[in-house]
């Protein structure tokens, strides 16, 4: 019996979302009175034994380089075999891009009920009920999983990582890796910039900035904060900024610690993409902008005046500390 935690990696490194699922999986295992075990597919440069500090005793690794690329059919086969080998009652993923590709397929193969986008540990006092975000973050649903094996994918940045003492034993897992049907012909990783969905801080601009030539003040603030940049839908549609920066209901959904919205009115579709952010700041010259109702902090003012001052003030604070 175990809780099996899928450990995702990219460019040879284990990502922050994996530390969150490791913490989550370890706490769930303790709650169920069972063991937490990790699973790594492919090869990584990081020291996997150190992941023991998140509460896992054993990490299984299928160190086959073919698994550095995701073919969901191959992954589902290998993860299912690993789940069966470790007698997993629960398999935990991050609800990141990899989890969205793989978790549901694994669930179907195991004929396991799945809750994706979970945001809390299950309530196991009467059955197995998992809380998840629904309606694009506008509500929560408590879902009962009724099958013997269960799959959960955890919303990134919704569970606090806890570290303790401990070293994990890494054991190679001998599983036949089937041939991939999907061929990866190009990979384009965002380098130098902070990927939007992984960023702790996001600075986002809207139509209030009046044109792409004015984005310097957004980029300056983002740079000072080590933040990713984003934009509203009209900005993406007008090609002021690349499409992949569009956050909102139909664009990218983000959940950073801090979301700073500049010149964005806060239409309900935009809020649906950002309302899982821990803290939201709005800067807008229109005091009636709906974003003020959703935000935690706000400044009513002209972005062109406020932003350079804000960037300078943050720089000053960092110097003082």
């Amino acid at each position: 019996m175990s809780v099996l935690i899928f450990i995702d990696h990219s460019d040879g490194h284990v990502k922050k979302s994996s530390f969150e699922v490791l913490t989550y999986g370890a706490q769930l295992a303790a709650q169920l009175g069972t063991q937490a075990e990790g699973l790594v597919l492919g090869t990584v440069n990081d020291d996997l034994t150190s992941l023991g500090k998140y509460g896992v005793s054993t990490i299984h690794q299928v160190a086959n380089e073919q698994l550095n690329n995701i073919d969901t059919q191959v992954f589902a086969q290998v993860i299912t075999d690993a789940a069966n080998a470790s007698g997993a009652q629960v398999v935990v993923f991050s609800h990141n891009q990899t989890g969205k590709a793989v978790a549901a397929r694994v669930a179907a193969k195991l004929k396991a009920g799945i809750v994706t986008g979970a945001c809390a540990l299950p309530d196991t006092s009467n059955g197995f009920v998992v809380r998840k975000t629904v309606f694009s973050g506008k509500a929560f649903a408590n879902i009962s999983i009724n099958s013997p094996i269960k799959v959960i994918s955890l919303n990134p940045n919704s569970f606090t990582t806890i570290t303790g003492e401990g070293t994990a034993t890494v054991t190679p897992l001998n599983i036949t890796v089937p041939a991939a049907k999907i061929k990866i012909i190009a990979t384009n990783k965002v380098s130098g910039e902070v990927p939007l969905t992984e960023a702790d801080i996001v600075v986002s601009g809207g139509r209030g900035l009046k044109g792409p030539e004015n984005w310097g003040i957004i980029l300056d603030l983002a740079k000072e904060l080590g933040a990713a940049t984003a934009c509203s839908r009209p900005v993406g549609d007008a090609h002021w900024r690349p499409h992949h920066e569009h956050v909102g209901q139909t664009g990218v959904q983000v959940a950073p610690n801090l979301y700073i919205a500049v010149g964005i009115s806060g239409a309900i579709q935009h809020l649906a993409g950002v309302n899982r952010s821990k803290v939201m700041v709005v800067i807008n010259k229109d005091p009636e902008a709906p974003f003020f109702k959703a935000a935690d902090y706000g400044i009513v003012g002209d972005a062109f005046e406020v932003l350079p001052k804000l960037t300078a003030a943050i720089k000053q604070m960092k110097t003082n500390n």
């Binding site: 986008g117 998840k132 629904v134």
Partner: peptide, 14 residues
């Protein structure tokens, strides 16, 4: 956009 499951495609493929 209601249940935000992102599950049907992967399951259907399986």
């Amino acid at each position: 956009i209601d249940y935000n499951g992102s599950s049907i495609g992967g399951m259907l493929a399986e």
